[in-house]
Design a protein around this nucleic acid. Structure first.
Lengths: 360, 360
DNA sequence: TTGTAAGCGTTATCAG
DNA sequence: CTGATAACGCTTACAA
């Protein structure tokens, strides 16, 4: 834990000025002899460049922050897994913020951008308030939002298409002959909750199925609450032959309930989750799930941010990642998983990736 | 993205010196009138203190790094979930490094401590080489290791007790009447792999069971490889009545294989995993697993590091977190999970937490 | 109580 | 090609 050497130490040792040391260390044109002396001194002293001093001067920290609601949620985890290597490859470190979806905490993160400890921020808020929008507009560092923002918001933005995602799931269930498709959702005041509620209604309509509030229940995006909501729904409407769940955790809760009720999945009730997290492949029966491309969204966000860091003036871009239905046993039965061996599995239905707006 | 105001801007605006601004901002004794002027100016300008400049001067970044093998592994995830809030509460940010368990990358992280972009590091290496030990000894910032290091290594250190953990599992299986208990392990050149192999042998011996290499197979710590290894083991020795797996992912792979082979769990073969990750509760049948206290280890590591940052001179400490057997359906059958509703479940067997060495 | 000035470790400008 | 020297934005003696 000894006090580290600085370019001053090296300069003394090599008998040159600190300017020369800096030049050598940055690969600027220098006489061979000087280069040699400096490098030798640096080596002997075990010199490592001080990132803080460098940042102060260069106004670049080579750090990027990612703010998510909860690192425990596999969706964000999938994002981090993609964001990390992209940033690392570009020479950036990742600073993690877990906000528990508390608006004040998210605003705080946005505000702290003024401290200049990062060059940019990727944020994935569950709710987008006016305060968010105001802070984003005046942020002191570039921001990329994962999630939908109001049209016209000037910010780089990566979206899922849960509308299409829900439709894929409903269509799949319809084609399997299901006609009484219940819906277990998360809070309606969240962006995904609202979007999925609307999408469920639309998808039913498209198929000519009636909307019946009896078979719709709102809970929250975690397992215990998903179980509670599913139970309430089943008690009220025992006749459902399928459950569309607004995320995988809710779906796992639903599976718990169905199992406890002695109902067979998918024979009696088919179940579809959303997000296609690791848990979907791990559960039994394995869970058919709509992937909203968490991994792709993470990757896209990181890339948008890197582009932005290289060009602060281009138009903000919106990238929409296409959903994909991953069919597993909870709708298709054992047939869907015969011979499965690896981490992931299931037949998938793809929708091409779309991108719109901004610089080409 | 306007250039932010500095204390100079404030000083001008308030008509005082930058020293006074700094004093006010740091709550040092100042005349009321000055305080008022400075705060007013700061407020109007939307001033936010530059963390980089402050760090350069104070030699504190208020950042801590956590280096793990793979953020995708639920074990590390459980650690991050605990580390994050502890650090946050103490005013530190978390910088994440994912090393893929590549030694060179880990050494690199240790080396980069010299850049002084963090005040300390928590690292959880799968393998501990001499190079690790050398770098740890000369590290330019305090380091806490999660995982076992050789006796006498002077470093704050949080350990799991996989020895006792494996014994808990074997004892449990033995008490269920299992006598032919196979073992599916990860690489023997990793710290946990080696420890668990030794522990398995010991536990069998304690129970008077013979060690039979026919029913031991080495693979790797992920699902597909766990499945491969379990299949090899079962092909060779169809008579096993239990499988002890070196982690949960391996156990999930084993479950896949048993299911495909038409064997009932736990009736034909009981299965125990290790780490008690979220996946253990999600799988079906739910997985009995030995918790090695990932969450507790993460928390302990964060606390050790904070203590160290507050007192650089005290003796290094070693904290050992006690294992805990979480019994679920894969050994105890449906009975174990009746009425289960929440995220976690299962009867648990506790071993008191131990701590040894260093300052009290 | 306040201002001046000296750093913290770099990078970068500008004469020599 | 190299050496002084001035920033970067902040904290902190030391004087006034």
């Amino acid at each position: 834990m000894a006090e580290g050497p600085t370019i001053n130490t090296i300069a003394e040792r090599a008998g040159v000025s600190i300017a020369s040391v800096s030049r050598v260390l940055n690969g600027l044109p220098t006489r061979q002899e000087t280069v040699r002396k400096v490098l030798a001194a640096a080596e002997e002293l075990g010199y490592v460049r001080n990132a803080v001093a460098r940042s102060l001067k260069s106004r670049r920290t080579h750090q990027v922050a990612f703010a998510m609601a909860d690192i425990g949620n596999p969706v964000y985890l999938a994002m981090v897994r993609q964001i990390q290597p992209v940033l690392k490859a570009a020479g950036y470190r990742l600073v993690l913020h877990s906000t528990d979806a508390i608006v004040a905490d998210e605003i705080d993160v946005l505000h702290s951008l003024g401290e200049r400890y990062v060059d940019g921020l990727i944020m994935s808020p569950l709710r987008v308030t006016n305060e968010h929008l105001k802070m984003i507009a005046t942020a002191r560092a570039p921001v990329v939002i994962i999630g939908s923002v109001p049209e016209g918001t000037r910010v780089d933005n990566v979206r899922a298409d849960s509308r299409t995602g829900v439709r894929l799931a409903i269509d799949h269930l319809y084609e399997l002959g299901r006609r009484r498709i219940g819906f277990v959702n998360g809070p309606l005041d969240t962006v995904p909750g609202a979007a999925r509620a609307a999408a469920y209604g639309e998808a039913l309509k498209e198929r000519g199925l009636p909307y019946d509030e009896e078979i719709v229940e709102v809970g929250d995006f975690y397992r215990a609450e998903g179980a509670r909501a599913a139970r309430a729904l089943l008690d009220r409407a025992p006749g459902v032959d399928a459950l569309m769940c607004a995320n995988d955790l809710i779906a796992l809760g639903a599976l718990d309930v169905l199992r406890a009720a002695g109902l067979r999945v998918p024979e009696d009730v088919a179940v579809v989750g959303m997000d296609d997290t690791d848990l979907a492949a791990a559960s039994w029966p394995s869970l058919t799930s709509v992937s909203l491309g968490s991994a792709e969204r993470g990757k896209a966000a990181a890339e948008l941010l890197l582009d932005r860091l290289n060009d602060m003036d281009s138009q903000p871009r919106v990238v929409t990642v296409a959903p994909r239905l991953v069919i597993r046993a909870s709708t298709a039965g054992e047939a869907a998983v015969l011979g499965v061996r690896g981490e992931t599995s299931g037949e998938t239905v793809n929708i091409p990736l779309q991108s719109k707006g901004g610089t080409p």
